[in-house]
Every structure is written in C-alpha cells, then in structure tokens.
Nucleic acid binder design. Structure first.
Length: 548
DNA sequence: GCCGTTTTCGGCCCGACTGTTTTCAGTCG
C-alpha cells in the first residue's frame, strides 16, 4: 500500500515531466494535488474507500482515477508513459537553482545534455559558448550552481527547530546594526511549518542601502546572491537561503501577508479579490489605482470580507471559507499554557537546578510544573534524579507554583515502578523494538501522559489508543513528538495535546515556540490542550496545592 | 487538470531580479 508521501512524490514527478514538456497549467494542478495529499491526516486509501477523493482540494476526475489506479495496482500507466518521453537526468537538472524547465529542455534538445554531470562536462568543454541566450555570466552562474548542487546538504529543507536560532540571530544582528524600524519574519517559518526551505525577513527602513550593507556583513552570511532596490538574497554559510525585503510602512501588512503565504492561501485570496473587482499584491489592496488598504494584514482581510487568519493555518484547507463566515475560533496562545507536565532536569541535577527551574516557571507565570523524577530513559536503562534534587522538589514551596513528580515508564510495560521514586503520575515513552502504545489501558485512577511517541507514522498507532485510554499526547519538534499533521489527527480524534513550555531549558531554546506553533498549526484551541487547564483538572489529584 | 454566489468554458497570482536583450524571457517566491 503506497503511503501518502509516495503518492505526493509521484504527482510531483509527473508535474516536473509535464513542465519539461512545456505544458502550461497541468504541472501546477498536479503539484496542488501533491500538496493536498501530503497534508491529509489519514491514509489516501481510507479516503478512497469512503469515495471522498474528490473532496480533497485540487483533486478532480482525472487525478482521482489516477489515485485509484495507483492504490490498487501500485503503478500508474500515465506516469510510466511520461517517463519515456524525457531522459531521467533532466529532472535532476530542474533541481539546480536558476535552472528551470525551459532551460533544461533546451540543453536536452539542442545540446543532447541529459543530466547535471553531462551539463558540467559540456560547460567545461566550452560547448555553451555561442549558444543564443547564454552569455558568460549565465554560464558561470550555471557552472557554480551545478558545483554547489553537487555539494552536501544543498537544496535541503531545514527542520524548523534548527532554523529557529539562526533566524533569531539574523533578526538580532539586523536590529543591532541600526537603520531598521520594523522587522518581522515571514514565509513558512512564520507559518511554523515543520521544515523551511529558506527564510524571509521583512523590514521597514528609510535607509535600505544601509540595511542591505549590514545584512551582507553579518557573520552568518556566506554569499550575496542578488541585490536590488527592494530585496537582497543571500546564502548563509551553513547553506540556508535568506531573502531580506524592504517595504514601506503603508504596505507592510500586505507584504507580510503576501510573503507569509502559503502560496495556495494567497492564490485563493487573489481570486476572491478578483471576484470583488479588487486586486491584492504585496503593495496593498487596490480598487483600480486606489489603494484601499495594506498597512496591516487585518485591513487586507477585511477588504475581502474576511476575518484575520492566524499564519499557522494559512494553507487553504478551508480556513478562508471559515474566515468569510466570521471570526475564526481562537488558537491556543502562550499565556494560556498554565503549566507543564513534562519537565526534564539533567540526570545529575542539583537542588539549585530545581530552584532555577521553579524560578523560571514563576517568571513565566506557570501555575504548576510536573518534573520527571526517574524511570526508563531512551536507552531503556533506569535512572533516578539525585536525592538532593528529589528532596528539594518536596521541600520547595514556591508561592503560586505547584510542583508534581512524574515518572517515565516504557510503554510496553517493561519497567515496573518497583524501585522508582515516588511519583504522582506517569508518562509513557516508547522503548526498544516495539514503540507502539501499550496493549492494555493505563490503570484507572492514574493520570497518564504519553510523550516521545514519534511523528506521523507512530501517531497513526498512538492516536486511537490515546483516545480510548484518555491519554494526552505531546506535540513539538523533533522525531519523537507529534508534528502538526499528527497533532491534527489527534485533535480531530478528540485526543488532548500536551504543549511543552521549555521551562527547564535555556531561554532561547526553540522547543516551546515551535511546539506551540505546531499545536496552532493543528488547529488546536485552548480546550484541546491539556496544560491550559488548572492544575487539579490537568492531572487529577496530584497537583492540588500541597498543605504545609 | 481543476474549478465555479458572474461560469460546465475559459480562466489559471503577479511582481522582482538577472542576463541578455534593443523590449524580453526565464526563474523564483
């Protein structure tokens, strides 16, 4: 049975081939279908079984048939026929930055070049000199792009928690350099997508040249790829591309909206604008020549008769229709997180580390923190916090903060509490070769959270179990938490999410903001999140304020 | 190939930047 990801890849390959063959609109149609399939929270086969493929945006009669053929036979005759029409290496040429379908097709038909290696060879032999449309600069551009594409990590999307500190440093660097009035991040970073292909930074400034100069000189910046009057594109030393744009304050909202995307969201907004006789672009919203809005995002949405849409859900999955009906149901926000049920201290934590964590919890106005005091680690070995730290957890009576003890158990039941320290509730984590949920529900009366359960695939097994066992699942970055798609599946099934606050971590750690972003991307409101509840409601009995 | 509170046909976001142009094509986001 093909996975959704494989089906999406198939349609992307079809789009690439159609591009090279010079088709005008089909490629985008197939890419749209691929994006839709990728964002499903259930298997394509399940949707097909219910006969609901056509309800997926971008899937019509023809693509529905192709999906059915692919699901039943594992092949697609149309794709196999297309494959024979272009050399396989041509599609690799499309991956080279600056090389598009038109150019790849010309290389193939005019020079007989069928792949990146052959193209590099042709350049080295001077076969491109004299070819119409390819001057020395263009040839050099392609040559260096080919060399860069052959290098490690080129063109890779970066996990957002990896990109997070990079983005923060760039913003801080630009602010420190001066000349910047307002600065915001846009793009898939702002939407908190799981991975980002580049970073988009928007600034207002009366001195664009000064800002571009400062940007070019930031220590993270490797190479300036292009620079015009309103935008500069650089590649960081570690390979990430960053676009910096200067926009005027009267258009900031329109630009922020435009460059935040997603593409599908923008296209949908524009079609609504067109229907109303309006035009939206990054400079504002216009009736004829007259700009009727653009200073804020709200202005642009309002001009289209829409409520403001939070960036995390701008994916054209129905949010625009909902915004047309009225204000959207609010997504969970950081101040609503009243506690954290899953805090880790270092295995050798001291009493002072405990105090530091509690101080951090107070500073963030958390009402309660549940600290893991021991259990089984990722390697399956048992561990316990040092006795000094345990004692401090019990003796700490910080006003306003309730401190609870959690233990981490293997989900397969291998680790019995036995010699584990006393705890108020437990957290399940998958260990070893069978990382799925337990076969039995947790003991009644004991509150349980499941964490470290893994991403999309694991979620398919954990979500039904968590629903029947009434166990919350943790969302957040990294391979061992639910991503936003898995979290959406959990939320739709009525499973509560736990959103870590990073209270035991460094101030600039990306865990908390990214986890919150994923929860919001999943569409979670405050009621969908376990740790927005008051302490007693979040965990049952453990977190009632202790009496001295 | 998809889609539809103007439509089942005729649209399909649109502007910046670059290199190669003597007015524009290709790529990108």
């Amino acid at each position: 049975m093909p996975t959704n990801r494989e089906a999406a890849e198939l349609f992307r390959s079809i789009a690439d081939i159609l591009d090279v063959l010079g088709e005008r609109f089909k490629p985008e149609a197939y890419r749209r279908a691929a994006r839709s399939i990728e964002s499903l929270t259930e298997d394509l086969a399940a949707v097909a079984a219910r006969n609901e493929l056509r309800t997926i945006p971008g899937i019509g009669e023809a693509i529905e048939e192709k999906i059915r053929e692919y699901l039943t036979t594992g092949h697609l005759a149309y794709y196999e026929r297309l494959q024979k029409e272009v050399p396989p290496g041509i599609l690799d040429l499309l991956r080279v930055p600056g090389l598009g379908p038109k150019t790849a097709r010309r290389f193939w038909l005019e020079l007989g070049v069928e792949g990146p290696a052959e193209l590099a060879d042709a350049i080295a032999k001077g076969r491109l000199t004299g070819v119409a449309g390819f001057g020395p600069k263009k040839v050099e551009q392609i040559r260096s792009a080919l060399a860069a594409a052959a290098g490690p990590g080129a063109g890779q999307r970066l996990p957002i928690d990896t990109a997070y500190p990079v983005a923060q440093r760039l913003v801080a660097g630009l602010k420190a350099a001066g000349g910047v009035e307002r600065i915001e991040l846009a793009g898939s970073f702002r939407r908190c997508r799981e991975t980002v292909g580049d970073l988009d930074i928007l600034v207002t400034s009366s001195e664009p040249e000064r800002v571009f100069d400062a940007f070019s000189r930031l220590p993270e910046v490797g190479e300036v790829r292009l620079r015009g009057g309103t935008k500069e594109t650089v590649v960081l030393r570690q390979g990430l591309q960053v676009d910096l744009r200067v926009v005027e304050p009267a258009a900031f909202g329109a630009a922020w909206l435009y460059f935040t995307g997603s593409k599908d969201h923008n296209v949908h907004l524009r079609s609504i604008a067109r229907d109303r006789g309006l035009k939206v672009n990054e400079y504002g919203i216009f009736r004829g020549e007259e700009r009727i809005g653009g200073r804020t995002e709200e202005e642009v949405y309002a001009a289209l008769g829409l409520a403001w849409v939070p960036p995390e859900i701008r994916e054209d999955r129905g949010e625009i229709d909902a915004a047309a009906r009225g204000p959207l149901p609010p997504l969970v926000t950081a101040p609503e997180l009243r506690g954290d049920l899953h805090c880790h201290l270092a295995p050798d934590a001291s009493a002072r580390d405990v105090d530091r964590m509690i101080a951090a919890a107070r500073a963030r106005h958390l009402d309660y923190v549940g600290v893991v005091v021991g259990g089984v680690g990722a390697d399956g070995a048992r561990w316990t916090l040092p006795s000094a730290a345990l004692a401090r957890l019990d003796s700490a009576r910080p006003p306003g903060v309730t401190v609870g003890r959690a233990r981490e158990d293997a989900s397969n039941g291998d680790a019995s509490p036995g010699d584990a320290p006393r705890s108020d509730y437990r957290i399940l984590r998958p260990i070893g070769s069978s990382p799925g949920p337990p076969t039995r529900p947790p003991p009644s009366g004991e509150w349980t959270l499941a964490a470290h359960v893994g991403g999309d695939e694991a979620a398919r097994r954990w979500v039904p179990w968590a629903r029947s066992a009434r166990v919350a699942l943790e969302v957040g970055p990294g391979p061992e938490r639910l991503d936003s798609t898995a979290a959406r599946a959990a939320r739709e099934a009525g499973v509560a999410l736990h959103v870590p606050t990073g209270v035991a971590l460094a101030e600039d750690d990306p865990l908390a903001p990214v986890a919150l972003g994923f929860a919001r991307r999943s569409g979670a409101g405050p009621k969908d999140v376990k740790n927005t509840a008051r302490a007693a409601d979040a965990t049952g009995a453990w977190a009632r304020p202790k009496r001295a």
